[in-house]
Design a protein around this nucleic acid. Structure first.
Lengths: 272, 272
DNA sequence: AGAAAGATTCCGGTATATGGATTATTAGAC
DNA sequence: GTCTAATAATCCATATACCGGAATCTTTCT
C-alpha cells in the first residue's frame, strides 16, 4: 500500500524526507528527537543530515535547538515551478482582476492529477475554497478552475485523469462520473465554468482555462466569491473580464513550454 | 580564501548544491552535462542524485531530458509556515501600498549579510532594482530597504556586517566606508532611507525598516520608482504612508520571532 | 540517414554514512 | 538557585552504499 520500497531509500532521499518533515511541522521548529522519529532514522543520522542542511542554508536552528526550514529554502522554492514564468506573467492580471472585481482571484496549474494553486490575490470578502492558499491542491475536476483545466486537456489525458480521480472525488463527497462528464462537456462547450454544481454552500465562482497554442489547458484563472455576488446580472460581466485576461495571458506564455505530463514519481504520493 | 574545505563536502551537501544549480539555471531546465559541470561532480553522480531528487518530488525532467526544480518544491514551501509568517502578514500592506502609490513595492528581510526580497508587488512603471525578483539578494547596505535594515541592527551586528560587506560593496562600485557610515547615521536618525546616494540612474526609492519590539530591524518595506516620481512634493507623502504600514506590520508580527542571526553556513557562499 | 553528443546503466574499490555508546547541554522540577 | 531527567552533540569501528571510469543506449544535430 505505501511506497516504502523494500530496499531502503538512498541517504539522499532520506535527507529529503527530513525536509518534508520540517515543512510539515511547526514553523517554530521541531526537536531533533521528533524529527528523527518522524523520518524513521537514528538520532545521530538525523543530526548529521540537519547539520548539512543547515550548512547549505536549507535549514536552521531556532531558539531551543529546534530545527526548521531556513530562508534559502523558500528562496529556492520561489524559483521552482517557474518553467513557463506563469506566475510572474499572471501576477499583473491577478491584481487587475482583483481590483476590478473586488473578489478573490486564483491562478491554478495542472500538476499530475491535481490542480495546484500557484498564486492568489485576496479580495475584501472572506472566501472558502477547495484549493485554499497558495500551494493548495485539489483533484482535477473539483472546483471551477480545476474543472476548467480538466475540460480542456487532450482527450487521452483527460480520460486518464477522470479514471484516476473518480474515487478521489467520491471520497470528498462530490460528483458521480455522469455529472462530472456532463459538467466537462458543458465547460468545454461554453469555454468557462460556473458554480452550477453547487459545491460549498454560499460560495460561488467562475473559472476559465488558459490555453496554449494547441488549445490545451496549461492553467486556469478563477474567481471565488459569495454566491450572492454572482447573480445573473453580474455573471456575464465577470466571465468576459476573466476570459479577456486568460486570453492575454495565453499570449504572453512561452509557447515552448507544454503542460506537465504525468509525473514519473509513484502514484502513492498522491495522498500528500 | 575560498571555502573549499579540504575534505570534500558530504554527499548530501553536494546534492543540495545541485538544487541550487537548478534554481540558478534556466527555469526551462538544464542538461545533465551542464549540471554535473556546474556542480563539479561526475555525470553519473549527478544523474543518480537527480533521480533521487525527482523521486522525492524536488526535481523533475522536462521535455528534452532537461532537469528543473519541480512544482512540489514550491508547494512544500508554500504550505510550510511561511518564514515567520512575515510574507503572509505583509501581503495586504504591499497590495495597499502598490495601489495607493502606483509604484513597485518590496518586502526585504535580512539573511546573514544579505537582504533578501521576500515579496514584491509590481507597479505600472518598469523598474530596475538591485534585489530584483522575489528571492533576489543584495549585500546589506546596498539599496534603500537594505540600508534601512542595516541601519537598525544592534550595534555589534551592524559592525560585523559592515566589516564583511565593505569589500562586496566596493566590488559593486558603490560606497566607500565613510559614506556608508554617514548614510547609516542619517538613516537611523530620520527613520527612513531615500535615494540620496544615487544608485541606479533614473531610479529612486524609499525604504523604511520594520522594527521588532527591541527596535531591531527584522525587515524593510521599500518603494522603487522612477526618479521623477519622487520629487520634493511627493516624497514626504510616500515616506509617511510607508512608515504607517511598516508600523502596523510590526505590530502584527509574532513578538516571539526574532531576526535571523548569522547563519551558520560558511561565509563563502556569499558569492552566490 | 549517419555521426556526434548526451543520457543512462553497470560494476568494483573505496570512501563515507551509519547507529550504539559516550559526553555535553538543555529544560524542567522543586 | 540546584538538582535531575531528557535531549542534543560527538566519537568511532564497521559495513554499506556512494563514486566515477567504461560500456551501452538514446537523442539531437548535420
Amino acid at each position: 500500500m505505501n511506497d516504502s520500497d523494500l530496499q531502503s531509500p538512498s541517504s539522499l532521499r532520506r535527507a529529503l524526507r527530513l525536509l518534508r518533515v520540517l515543512a510539515a511541522g511547526d514553523p517554530a521548529g521541531l526537536r531533533l528527537k521528533d524529527i528523527a522519529e518522524a523520518a524513521d532514522c537514528s538520532q545521530p543520522t538525523a543530526h548529521r543530515m540537519l547539520q548539512d542542511l543547515a550548512a547549505e542554508g536549507f535549514a536552521e536552528q531556532a531558539a531551543g535547538k529546534r530545527y526548521r526550514l531556513a530562508l534559502d529554502f523558500y528562496v529556492l522554492a520561489a524559483r521552482a515551478g517557474q518553467a513557463s514564468g506563469l506566475r510572474e506573467a499572471a501576477r499583473p492580471a491577478l491584481l487587475r482582476l482583483s481590483a476590478t472585481l473586488s473578489d478573490t482571484i486564483f491562478l491554478l496549474v495542472r500538476n499530475g492529477f491535481d490542480a495546484v494553486c500557484l498564486d492568489r490575490v485576496e479580495g475584501p470578502f472572506p472566501i472558502r475554497s477547495f484549493t485554499g492558499d497558495i500551494g493548495g491542491k485539489v483533484p482535477l475536476g473539483l472546483g471551477q478552475g480545476s474543472l476548467a483545466i480538466l475540460a480542456n486537456l487532450p482527450e487521452d489525458e483527460q480520460e486518464a485523469v477522470i479514471r484516476f480521480n473518480i474515487p478521489r472525488l467520491l471520497d470528498r463527497g462530490f460528483l458521480d462520473e455522469a455529472s462530472l462528464r456532463s459538467a466537462l462537456a458543458q465547460a468545454r462547450a461554453q469555454g468557462w465554468v460556473n458554480t452550477s454544481t453547487g459545491l460549498i454552500p454560499g460560495m460561488a465562482g467562475v473559472g476559465v482555462p488558459v490555453l496554449d497554442t494547441q488549445a490545451r489547458a496549461v492553467a486556469a484563472l478563477s474567481v471565488g466569491t459569495l454566491a450572492e455576488r454572482l447573480n445573473a446580472d453580474r455573471l456575464p460581466h465577470v466571465v468576459k473580464i476573466l476570459q479577456g485576461e486568460a486570453q492575454a495571458l495565453a499570449g504572453k506564455l512561452n509557447p515552448f513550454d507544454v503542460a506537465l505530463r504525468y509525473p514519473s514519481r509513484s502514484l502513492s504520493t498522491i495522498g500528500n
